[in-house]
Amino acid sequence: MADTMGHSATATRNTRLVVGFCLLAIAPQIFEFIWSIGTIFGWGAGRGPVAVVTSHVTALLAGAPSAIFGSFGGGTKKVSSDVLLALIYSYPLFVVAILTLFMTIRSAQDYVGGVVLMALALFALWAGSDLQGMRGFSFGAGTAPRMFGGLLVALSAGIALTGLLTDGPPMAHYSWRGPLFVVAAILFFALSIRSLGLVVTAYASFMIAAAGSHETRWLEAAIVGACLTLGCAILFPSVLGLPMPMYPRFLIQ
């Protein structure tokens, strides 16, 4: 009884991992899609969302398979970057995801770590795929990235394998509150330092970051934040002579 229960537990775990890996496999595509939504409102440059979706879907479903078979036929047609992304990045990860279905994972920490690292390496290989390779005996711009990218794929595969072959710790527990608010504070700081100036930005970011811990006492944080902001406002621009805007732009003008 216990045995079957244990078995079903790993099975659900595995399917969750498989879904996760599949999402990871199309993460760059999803990211570009989200990014492209901005172009509707005129932010940023790039392709519109519709173009992104159609291009990636055709690349994933049609372009890449035909490129694979085309290569058997000796075709040297130039493939588009979307097709390359599907070929270099997405397909290998889909393969890993499918393989995961049939594996017993003995150390999820290592296995997942290895696979995600492999995804990073594959992504780097794709990102460097447009660079020039060896020219005679001299290195091109793309030689070293490809060398190290390939090495990292091999190493991460090794790490994933150790996760299958040896017992080790399961996935660590992630908390969401700390990372969320700390990153939110950093983002807020980055996005508003230019327009709102140091004083407002530093204080607001302090309060956002303070929300990351459940032990925060708000009155105390408000006072300390004010003191810290004052200190920074004196220290950085005046004492250390680092140029940065102090007050919101709209107040000065």
């Binding site: 504070a185 811990s213 105390e220 300390v224 920074c232």
Partner: peptide
């Protein structure tokens, strides 16, 4: 720590920003 960590975050953020003045 509840007071220290937001301070460190701000300090680091200002520090990085001031390297290149790049958000």
């Amino acid at each position: 720590y509840r007071l220290m960590f937001p301070s460190i975050v701000i300090f680091c953020a200002i520090g990085i920003y001031s390297v290149n003045n790049a958000p």
